[in-house]
Design a protein around this nucleic acid. Structure first.
Lengths: 268, 268
DNA sequence: CGTTGAAATTGATTCAAATCAAGTTGATGC
DNA sequence: GCATCAACTTGATTTGAATCAATTTCAACG
């Protein structure tokens, strides 16, 4: 599985499009320390990095490629917890849970990962405040996402789940392009970063149901061509917004959004 | 709603049966600082401490009573995220998410809470390593629980969800009694700490379905009398165990458990 | 360019949990 | 003791997503 293993070089970071959350605000010295303790490795799609029940050994930083974290049971059922790409980390939360890993980690697209030893992370948290806060923010954000996932499965219809997922991807990709030098501040188009069956599983439904939800959502002003999603108008996804998501929405201030939950003082 | 408000006194902690995770390993000085910044308040059952979309202001430490955290939508649907009692905290994770609270917090049983100002917590995390690690462990544990909840709703049957919930409560209450001076090391009995309809909602099912799941589970060697659950034998709940839970099980080492996933090298 | 195989779509059928609708139990107060 | 009300249980019915099954689409490769 392992094709390549070297000491991580700082310039690998420069190649990443957006600054990874794990390293924000760290001193040069701190960064050096992390890099020197880590190794780079390549993995093939399909490889199981971590199995459910394994003792966590490393934190994995994605330089290139895609992973997913999941839970599985005896009858072959799988629940995809997270789907992650470039600049994201995994196993950092598991490291601080006592006991073996509650999740498996699978390589979805051929990936280059930076492996940071678990022991190093645990020590480093105690010596670097900024790093500790970074970790806290990351785990906290995972928890928020998990709460949304619970919410979705408990009280949302398949169409609502897909709509909310689209809304998030749309907002993510808008903020990405604004950070880079693209001029287009409000793109009406975005892409599905994973194959549909994986997204379906993440949303707690079968591929068939996902497909049917897509054809429903097409009737709501959203064009779907393969991986490309195109909105007919900027408000097309506002149906699916909720109070805490509206807060990050650039349209929320423009008072003309017909569905925005921040208007009319909606309380759930 | 507020019946009483005083500066928190240290001796309130002494009254708590088990040492709360938030304060473990802190110096006397650190504890003093926290107590001096906090206030005690009483709340009536039903009160909404925090609404979805509110900006978080405090961390709530439960001295007495019960709370639940939940998400709700426009159509009246509710998803219970956590149900918490004495010695537990909430809003500590939300504090480190950017933006407004994704959850509401409701008082379920009349409660006495210690309110720790959010700003204090944020500052204190940067100055006290132990406190930072405590928080990291707490949030990380919430995340683990949330992953179990996702798993449950995605790939478990109602009966399996109830069984797994029972298993957890059983293990919790066993470890509690071992810490205190009770001799009975392996109790066959435990109690449901919340009313059934709340548990049902937390498990992502209707009260009717929960009730039917209970009658199924009675056939598996588990007696249910109101709030009291009594196991016919110590292994009655082992059906519902998984790899990461087995790790904390006192029976797992005894190789005679017929269902334990740690035996026979089960891989999911 | 056509072949191959995986992924996705679409349709028909099944099934499990939600809903609807009575009852029952159990706690609280008069 | 009995009345009252909420929580829970139990049964009948409906419904929406899973499953099963048959195409269709599309990318990879010879």
């Amino acid at each position: 599985m392992i094709k390549n293993s070297t000491i991580a070089k700082p310039r690998n970071f420069a190649e990443l499009s957006k600054k990874p959350q794990l390293f924000t605000g760290l001193s040069e010295k701190a960064l050096q320390q992390i890099l020197e303790s880590s190794t780079l490795q390549d993995y093939k799609a399909g490889h199981l990095l971590v199995q459910q029940g394994d003792q966590p050994t490393h934190v994995y930083f994605i330089v290139e490629g895609r992973l997913r974290t999941l839970r599985a049971n005896r009858d072959g059922g799988e629940a995809t917890i997270r789907m992650l790409g470039q600049g994201e980390v995994c196993m950092e939360a598991v490291l601080f849970m006592r006991g073996p890993s509650p999740i498996a980690v699978q390589v979805v697209d051929d990936a280059q990962l930076m492996l940071i030893p678990g022991g190093f992370i645990k020590r480093f948290v105690l010596q670097d405040h900024q790093f500790a806060t970074n970790l806290l923010k990351i785990v906290t954000h995972h928890y928020k996402t998990a709460m949304h996932q619970i919410d979705a499965m408990a009280i949302k219809s398949p169409v609502q789940r897909v709509g909310y997922y689209f809304l998030q991807k749309h907002m993510e990709q808008n903020s990405d392009t604004q950070n880079s030098d693209t001029q287009n501040s409000d793109t009406m188009e975005f892409e599905l970063p994973f194959k549909k069956s994986t997204i379906a599983n993440h949303l707690g439904m079968t591929p068939e149901t996902f497909s049917r939800a897509l054809s429903q959502i097409k009737k709501m002003g959203i064009d779907i061509k393969g991986e490309k999603i195109r909105l007919k108008d900027a408000y097309a996804l506002c149906h699916f917004c909720d109070l805490d998501t509206a807060h990050e929405c650039t349209l929320a201030t423009k008072e003309d959004c017909p569905h925005c939950p921040t208007h009319a003082g909606i309380r759930y």
